[in-house]
Simulated scan of single mutants.
Amino acid sequence: MVHHQIKVAQALISAITEGGRGANGTPFPNQPEKALKLYEFEGSPFCRRVREVMTLLNLDYEVYPCPKGGTKYRAIAKEQGGKAQFPFLIDENTGEKLYESQDIINHLFKNYGKNGKTPKRYARYPKLPIVAFAGTLINGARGVWVDKKIVNREAPKQLLELWGFEASPYTRVVRGVLTELELPFVFHNVAKERWQDQGPSFLRLKPGKYVPLKEGKRSKVVDVMGRHKKDIQVPYLVDPNTGAQLFESEAIVDYLQKKYGA
């Protein structure tokens, strides 16, 4: 069994390979009225591209994990869109159902960006995601295959809720487990909104008490998930099925595996 901190280190290196994408986002997102639904799996480099843009736009969305070998949401995705290909986005606000990561990215910028245009940096991805694929390998290919112990097990009645952002290595470890256990969840992006937010909560570039940007998205969630209501620390998991509320990736992973993977 790989030690948890080694998994975190692998996830950190994986994030670095993407050049910092998936860490920063707008403090004033254009959040859709109806939740975006993303069928994907953590270890897919194409899905990763979409998640990075979701963080940049600071959008919340529902995740329906579709790991290889999964039996729950792969079938639903095929039923909804006609094929088991990922990522697959359902946007009930526009009535669109989209495959192909670039098409999804263009859709997100068009409908939820500031000017409706896809920035050049996100408009011309290489056809083969070599860098992102390398990141998946560095991360131990976690979040690619279903945990065979839970195949055909019923999903919890209510979606779990996870606060984090794409590039957070601690969040990445948790998302990998959620994928392998086929646990659907709402992902609340809390992207870094300015230079003062950079760095982990215990070693931020601007020392002292954390004060979120006024009227920014973080200011609206710090009382919900901020540790001691005065800081932002991710990941943070809420399970409405049991009432569990957990910080610390290792504690969250342990909870998920005991509750849903045993």
Rank of each mutant, 00 (worst) to 15 (best):
H3Q: 15
H4N: 10
H4Q: 11
Q5Y: 07
Q5N: 14
K7Q: 08
A9H: 15
Q10P: 05
A11H: 04
S14P: 10
I16A: 12
E18K: 11
G19P: 01
A23T: 06
A23C: 08
N24C: 12
P27W: 02
N30G: 05
P32L: 06
K34H: 06
K34P: 03
L36R: 00
Y39F: 15
E42K: 13
G43V: 07
S44D: 00
C47Q: 01
E52M: 15
L56G: 05
N58L: 06
D60Q: 08
Y61L: 00
V63W: 09
V63C: 08
Y64K: 04
C66N: 05
P67T: 04
K68E: 13
K68A: 08
K68R: 14
G69T: 05
G69R: 04
G70S: 04
T71N: 09
Y73L: 01
K78Y: 07
K78G: 08
G82K: 09
A84H: 03
Q85C: 11
P87I: 03
P87T: 02
P87S: 07
F88S: 00
L89I: 00
D91C: 05
E92V: 02
T94N: 06
G95C: 02
L98C: 02
Y99G: 03
Y99R: 12
E100P: 01
D103E: 15
I104D: 03
K110T: 08
K120W: 12
Y122G: 05
Y125T: 05
L128E: 14
L128W: 14
I130R: 01
A132C: 12
A134E: 07
A134G: 10
G135Q: 12
L137K: 09
L137Y: 09
N139T: 07
G143R: 04
W145D: 11
W145H: 10
V146G: 02
D147R: 10
D147G: 04
K148F: 06
K149S: 03
I150M: 13
I150C: 10
R153Q: 13
K157T: 09
Q158F: 13
L159P: 01
L162R: 09
G164L: 12
G164K: 10
E166W: 05
T171V: 15
V174W: 05
R175E: 08
G176R: 15
E182I: 07
L183F: 09
F185D: 03
H188F: 09
N189G: 10
V190L: 14
A191L: 05
K192M: 14
E193R: 11
W195L: 14
W195N: 15
Q196Y: 04
D197K: 13
P200W: 09
F202N: 10
L203Y: 08
K206Q: 08
P207M: 11
V211P: 04
V211R: 07
V211S: 07
P212N: 02
L213W: 02
L213C: 01
R218T: 04
R218C: 07
S219H: 02
V221K: 10
V221N: 13
V221P: 02
V222P: 00
V222L: 08
D223N: 12
D223E: 04
M225K: 08
M225F: 14
G226I: 01
H228A: 13
K230L: 15
D231Y: 01
I232E: 00
V234C: 03
P235L: 03
D239C: 03
N241A: 00
E248R: 13
E250G: 08
E250L: 14
Y255I: 12
L256D: 00
K258R: 12
G261L: 08
A262M: 12
A262V: 04
